[in-house]
Design a protein around this nucleic acid. Structure first.
Lengths: 205, 205
DNA sequence: GTCTATACTGAGATAGAC
DNA sequence: GTCTATCTCAGTATAGAC
């Protein structure tokens, strides 16, 4: 990868994580990266495609790690289903590790999930991993319908996006524990573990 | 309120709920509402202010209902803390009722929370209500620190935004139960009830 | 293949006539 | 209150230099 392309990616990652996608203009990115505007469209095609490649650059590695960890837990569990806590650990620990080195990327991911902006990338790179995890959850939570597991997985994404994006924001009006990424993730897992294991929603007719 | 202003609000609510805030241009709104572009800036000042008034128009009523319902539950509970399930009911039922009549508004709210776009309105109109609910949760969950309750409340917002926004989206790659608003909300409350009542996150040092 | 310069279209915002 | 004209800035497209 050429230095121009890399400069664009690095600068865009930092600025979009800080300000959001819509609020960050290409002109601001190229100004700070000291490259030409057209170089962005030469290398990426569009602003949206730049975002997609930004995600893809790191998401692939994180998702590979996620699946590997899940596979390890599945081997350890033998014929038994993997416990929900372990499934959550497999899902979040690779992200936490990435976030400890580079919090910007994780915040970026949270923003993208919240804004619903990574349609193509989600399908291409996340969906296979998500599918593996939903399968694991179905085995761990046999009393839930497939639809309810999908709903809870979606709730999980929403909670996660707030966990990583909300770090800078004031904590719902009351003074929170601020920008402690590790603490926030541990609280998130604790919360999700209980939520995922809630009894099934009763059918109403 | 004049008919022009009202036409703008109604049209903007529908379009923004469908397409999102950034994806909806003022020119599209004024075209469908059949008003002049400058009228928007005359009545609202800016696109952002239009959004704020859009939220404010309905959020005030929803928040009033929330607080009233919570107060009723507090009276019923006497000196005991209100159960978490009841706190959640007080928070969500007014929103569900609004959403049953006008799903657009609830989806709009979800989008705004996800994208973090309603800075001024949240502080002015939501924070007092949020504060009341956090206080109720503190009483119901005395083993949790204030910081952890704030975190969980934030997770709740994230899950909620996905619950109401994700209705149209495909359910994480597996076929979901589609756009059933009532079902989605019941699942959400079930999920959140367990998540909020999870044991405290252990301190690590 | 890479990058630059420049122009095009559509966005939100504003000033001033009526 | 309303509308026209205009401003600035956004993302995008293209022609051509190296």
């Amino acid at each position: 990868m050429g230095p121009t392309k890399e400069k664009i990616l690095d600068t865009a990652e930092r600025l979009i994580a800080d300000q959001g996608f819509a609020a960050t203009s290409l002109r601001q990115i190229i100004s700070e990266a000291q490259v030409n505007l057209a170089a962005v469209h030469y290398h990426f095609g569009s602003k949206q495609d730049l975002l997609d490649q930004l995600i893809e650059r790191k998401a692939t590695r994180v998702n590979t790690d996620r699946e590997a960890l899940l596979a390890r837990f599945e081997t350890e569990a033998g014929s038994h289903p993997v416990a929900v806590e372990k499934i959550l650990r497999a899902f979040f620990e690779p992200m936490i590790e990435t976030g400890s080195q580079n919090p910007q990327f994780v915040r970026l991911m949270g923003r993208m999930i919240a804004e619903g902006l990574i349609t193509g990338v989600v399908e291409k790179h996340f969906q296979p991993t998500i599918f593996r995890f939903i399968c694991a959850l179905r085995r761990a939570l046999p009393s839930l319908t497939e639809g309810e597991i999908a709903s809870r997985f979606r709730f999980m994404f929403g909670a996660m996006s707030q966990a990583v994006c909300g770090l800078a924001a004031p904590d719902m009006g009351i003074q929170g524990d601020g920008a402690d990424f590790q603490l926030s993730m541990r609280r998130l897992i604790q919360f999700l573990s209980a939520g995922l294991q809630a009894p099934p929603t009763e059918e109403v007719r």
